[in-house]
């Protein structure tokens, strides 16, 4: 009985570690890929209204841009070089506009 429990527990642990990791691992990488593009769309969607955002909102967007840039810099895969080049420039444009709007408001 004791051996059986130990065997069952070890088997369950093995199954969890092997399959669980595969499923969660794959899911999270796919999810992460979508996630950064969604974050990009979300963070840059406000550029048209940058001048009416509050300094706190602008700082928050700048912070989100910085985190996104770090994520993009870590991209891997076949198209990573192109994606890095394209999205780094795009996100930097958003970030710099928010920074510009923030400095404008601070000068005011």
């Amino acid at each position: 009985m004791k051996n059986f429990s130990r065997f069952t527990l070890l088997s369950l642990l093995f199954l969890y570690l092997f399959f669980g990791n595969c499923i969660v691992g794959n899911f999270s990488s796919v999810y992460a890929q979508d996630d950064w593009k969604q974050e990009y769309s979300s963070v840059c969607a406000k550029t048209q209204n940058a001048m009416i955002l509050t300094p706190e909102e602008l700082k928050s967007y700048i912070d989100r841009c910085d985190k996104l840039l770090a994520l993009i810099n870590e991209l891997e895969g076949e198209q990573a070089a192109t994606e890095k080049k394209v999205y780094t420039k795009r996100v930097k444009m958003c970030r710099e506009l928010y920074q510009f709007a923030l400095e404008y408001k601070e000068h005011k």
Binding site: T47, A50, E96, F100
Partner: peptide, 13 residues
């Protein structure tokens, strides 16, 4: 849009 000109072409705030 805004970010095409600011701050790249017109940087002054």
């Amino acid at each position: 849009g805004c970010e095409l000109c600011h701050p790249m072409i017109f940087p002054s705030t």
